[in-house]
Design a protein around this nucleic acid. Sequence first.
DNA 1: TTTTGTGAATTGCTTCACAGCA
DNA 2: TGCTGTGAAGCAATTCACAAAA
Lengths: 221, 221
Amino acid sequence: MIAKSENIPTPAVRRLSLYLRQLETFHANDRRTVSSKQLGAALSLTDTQVRRDLAYFGQFGHAGVVYCVAELLHRVRRILGTDKVSKALLVGVGNLGRALLSFHGFARRGFEVVAAFDTDPAKIGMTVGAQRPIRVRPLSELHAAARAQSIRLGILVVPTSAAQPVADEMVAAGIKRILNFVPVRLQLGRGIAVSSVDLAVNLEQLSFQLNGLAMVQVQTG
Amino acid sequence: MIAKSENIPTPAVRRLSLYLRQLETFHANDRRTVSSKQLGAALSLTDTQVRRDLAYFGQFGHAGVVYCVAELLHRVRRILGTDKVSKALLVGVGNLGRALLSFHGFARRGFEVVAAFDTDPAKIGMTVGAQRPIRVRPLSELHAAARAQSIRLGILVVPTSAAQPVADEMVAAGIKRILNFVPVRLQLGRGIAVSSVDLAVNLEQLSFQLNGLAMVQVQTG
DNA sequence: TTTTGTGAATTGCTTCACAGCA
DNA sequence: TGCTGTGAAGCAATTCACAAAA
């Protein structure tokens, strides 16, 4: 049994993250069991969608009996690979970079930022983050640090012009996954996973849903 | 002619934002014309995809002749509704909220944050943002301020427990679009557009692409 | 009856293949 | 030839409908 690893739809993997989030909430509220209908309702999804998504990754319950929150939680974490903590490094200690270094949400979800780099001499040597302070180091130390601590995840928060060269350096240093906050399409080799956060895209989607669409519909007549 | 407003695929609207970004780059480099193939290549998309996406929104070129960058840029902005500046307000002046207030990218893409709110007395009265400083006001003033300046867009950066009530307040104050940074599914009425930025989801997608998938495949054997 | 899991049908999105134009 | 725009085909994702189990 287990896992039709053949062809898992990308949207299903995205929703898996949402299930995890919701299961954590249920678990925190001491809820023991949950049905596909209830889990779906909390996320505005249908019960069928929930069951189908889970089915891509294996067997999670028995026919007729609802899911056990704790077990489902545990197994979804394993599937996503966040049951073990991953070390991450961050490059670019600007406003957003500093905010990310102070962000506790990472640790709670299995990610720990252990090193930060910048090229600005004014920033090098600073310590950022209250709970677990991190000293900002020169970018030239990235390679050695990544290798020494075998860091596989890089967070990219640099100016647009620096994005591609810094990403290349990350890859050269053994980084396999990049969380990219720079509005650029990074061109990297196969085997490197990139996930981009682009605020402009999100804002424009919102804009389109109201302004944009309205305008198009008006023009249609 | 113009706009099969019937059924525009969501992914096509997302890509429209990417086209806009790339066209801005081309325009900044004084490039006058671009083919669907060239535009696609810059974004790792096929030429067919680019043409099909544009076709959802109307006629953009003449058969046989490449697109004019400036014209395409202008029309995509109009479609997305970002040709006019939208005023926005922000609630929650924590680390991330402050970083967003200092972020210049918004203005460049047609969004201007004009007001910020928080409930923490220690933060109220602070000014944030270098170029266009904004004074942090008590949350109780949100309604009046949003109405007075007819603000339609809200940026939500509050703790998880406050997300739903603050979102409700935004809607009551006339906000129609919410950019949500809180990892919660907001339950709001129809006619309110929500776009969520969830860093954990992005990180988990990355994790799955390497760890997760690998693990599932191992289990498959 | 209520629930899970899943073939079958459906809907939605992307790619192919080519007409029409410069 | 090289390009855009688009019907038709192909593929991917979702929903329907129901069997099996408690």
